[in-house]
């Protein structure tokens, strides 16, 4: 049994797949920080991320499999689920064998975990397009904090930079300490310490109260259905929703 550990980046994952292919091994691939115990009877490799090797694999997926497959791989990687790296590896292996038809093998053990993970990521991204709540600093800077299950901050950027193109905004993932910062022209993802997230610095905003008022009065009392509400808007997201505070 051979284990590959990579640094957790997407390039690292692709490099591991490159190494596995050229070393003719079929390893178990996992991100380094998540591996708990190292078995002394197994061979363990630390894979060093290499931009060149990664981009080769990247191009190969695009050319030899399909654009859709590349999207599935990237989204599944962002899901950060346990064992998803290995699933992606199996998926790409099958993809190189059967080409763009890989996405038809919906019932295959090496395809449906990847499809599933990428679906979860896209689903949460769509949900967050709605559930992100910006707080306003003097109508000049808009700041939103959130704690998504998956690492979707990068996927939120296209939507919000189109929608709020004339507005400075920050979306801060306080679970992973990263944030997307937009300054009316460019958007970057940077490390962002948790300390920035501090409720005290926000002034009272009259529109927050108005929205809370609206939220309460739009509900039809005869139809109250908290189960349905939680089904659409799981409780773990409520912490950052001003109408639920």
């Amino acid at each position: 049994m051979v284990n590959y550990y990579y640094d957790g980046s997407f390039e690292g994952l692709l490099t591991s797949i490159y190494e596995a292919y050229y070393k003719r091994q079929s390893p178990y691939i996992a991100p380094a920080q998540k591996s708990k115990q190292i078995n002394m009877f197994e061979e363990n490799f630390q894979i060093e991320t290499c931009q060149e090797k990664a981009s080769k694999v990247y191009d190969a997926i695009y050319k030899k499999i399909s654009y859709d497959a590349l999207k599935h791989v990237y989204h599944a990687y962002l899901s950060e689920l346990d064992g998803v790296s290995q699933n992606i590896y199996q998926y790409i292996k099958l993809g190189f064998k059967v080409g763009k038809k890989v996405d038809l093998y919906l019932t295959d053990e090496s395809v449906f975990p990847v499809h599933n993970a990428s679906r979860l990521v896209r689903k949460e991204t769509h949900l967050m397009h709605g559930l992100i709540r910006f707080k306003s600093f003097d109508d000049d800077l808009y700041y939103a904090s959130y704690q998504p299950d998956h690492n979707i901050t990068a996927l939120l950027i296209p939507h919000f930079s189109k929608r709020f193109s004339s507005q400075n905004w920050i979306i801060h993932d306080i679970k992973r300490n990263i944030g997307a910062v937009y300054d009316k022209t460019n958007c970057v993802i940077t490390d962002m310490p948790n300390q920035i997230y501090n409720k005290q610095i926000f002034k009272q905003d009259q529109y927050e109260n108005l929205f809370k008022e609206f939220f309460n009065s739009i509900c039809i009392k005869e139809r109250i259905n908290p189960k349905l509400q939680k089904q659409f808007m799981p409780k773990r997201y409520w912490k950052h929703l001003i109408e639920k505070q």
Binding site: H129, S165, C219, I224, L241
Partner: peptide, 24 residues
């Protein structure tokens, strides 16, 4: 969206919250 404007339409539609009666 326009250059100095705000907002755009999303063809699939986006729900922003769900009230206590479960309606979006």
């Amino acid at each position: 969206n326009t250059k100095v404007g705000i907002g755009n339409g999303s063809s699939c539609g986006i729900c922003h919250s769900w009230s206590d009666d479960g309606r979006c």
